[in-house]
Amino acid sequence: MNKLIWTLLMIGLIVSCKAPQNEISEKQKLFDILQSVKGKGILFGHQDTYAYGYTWKDVEGNSDVKRVTGDYPAVFGWELGGIEKGVKANLDTVSFVNIRKYALKAFAQGGVNTFSWHPFSATKRVDSWNTTERVVDKIIPGGAYHEAFKKDLDALADYLNSIVTEDGVKIPFIFRPWHEMDGTWFWWGRTSCTPQELKDLFQFTVKYLREDKGVDQMLVAYSPDRNFNTIEDYLTWYPGDEYVDVIGMDNYYDLYTKGLVDEAIKKLHVIIKYANEKGKISALTETGYENIPDSTWYINKLGVVLSDSIVAANISYTLVWRNDPLKHFFFPYPGQPSAKYAKELLDRDGIWLLNDLVEFNKQNK
């Protein structure tokens, strides 16, 4: 054999041996973490926890969860509503520059990021809560505003793909589109579109982001509100297993209305069973009690739900909503009457904050 050819073959062999074999993607790592914590600890999350809190905004290192418990949440929620309009800040006045910074920080610290999206419509740019016109049938494939909607997804994808570490890693996250579709308050809700139109919207959104725009670092959550009792009800708007990684439920009402805690638990059992059958993550994707008028809510409502034996053994995380200094709060601040009860819940072995997750990952490398 020609000496030059032999040399080139050997170099190629050496390079191929040194190349990473079956390298695990960041998305898969995130999925594996969420699966591996099942039965050990439920990750606790808080929306916008770095961005603002009671009487403060954008203070480096601050978080109302940390102020009360001494640790950050394990799951960090962020909102992307407004990115489709090309504005500098989201609908909650948090700049997209800061959201990128916060999400990178959470990832570097070992936390889990999840993004919600309350978009302004591609038709008349009405906000998500404006249900005066039908939007979904106009933005799905074949609709008059489909191309305009694709431009909104382009802006969303460009932003998500810009959340990159200094080493060039696109950070993984959970994306929770078209949530609470069984309610009536969003333009993609049950009174504003048909179940099939919602499925078409969900499927197109995920396929376009992943396949056309290269957003391959996301897990996708399906999260209706509480308006179901059976798996058939729950799956009314379900786009299909190939589009969903997290089987979730948003539920506020059952957790603050007298006598309905057992209903919340039963509904979680429904989604847990399906998630386990399909090899997916299950989660209480959004909950809370606005301004926490019941000071014991964290132990007597949320705590009861999370301590149910089936729930505790199966769901991977839960997330409470945000602490807007001008509007409302869903996690207590120091001195607020429910703070001691929230701390009591989050001190439990089976409810994990950031340090618990980091330590678990260290031990399971």
Results as ranks from 00 to 15, higher is better:
234 Y>H: 07
139 I>L: 01
134 R>A: 02
171 I>T: 02
179 H>V: 01
201 L>G: 12
244 V>D: 00
110 G>K: 04
242 E>P: 08
156 L>M: 12
219 L>V: 02
147 E>M: 03
222 Y>T: 10
233 D>T: 04
198 L>P: 07
173 F>V: 01
126 V>G: 14
140 I>K: 12
211 E>F: 07
247 I>S: 09
229 N>Q: 01
168 G>E: 02
182 D>A: 06
115 F>L: 11
165 T>Q: 09
246 V>A: 07
163 I>S: 15
247 I>W: 02
205 T>D: 05
253 Y>S: 08
132 T>L: 08
139 I>C: 01
217 Q>F: 07
194 T>R: 14
235 L>Q: 11
238 Y>D: 05
239 P>V: 08
218 M>Q: 01
119 P>W: 03
155 A>L: 06
250 D>G: 13
251 N>L: 01
128 S>W: 05
177 P>Y: 03
126 V>E: 12
241 D>S: 11
184 T>K: 15
183 G>T: 12
204 F>N: 14
207 K>M: 05
140 I>C: 02
183 G>S: 15
190 R>F: 06
126 V>N: 14
192 S>E: 13
178 W>H: 12
203 Q>D: 04
227 N>Y: 15
120 F>W: 08
238 Y>M: 04
186 F>Q: 11
231 I>E: 15
250 D>N: 10
139 I>F: 05
230 T>H: 14
249 M>V: 10
222 Y>R: 10
204 F>K: 14
231 I>T: 14
189 G>E: 13
169 V>S: 12
133 E>N: 12
201 L>C: 10
132 T>Q: 12
122 A>R: 15
226 R>S: 05
180 E>R: 10
250 D>E: 09
214 G>Q: 03
186 F>M: 08
201 L>F: 02
138 K>T: 03
136 V>W: 02
155 A>K: 14
190 R>L: 00
108 A>W: 01
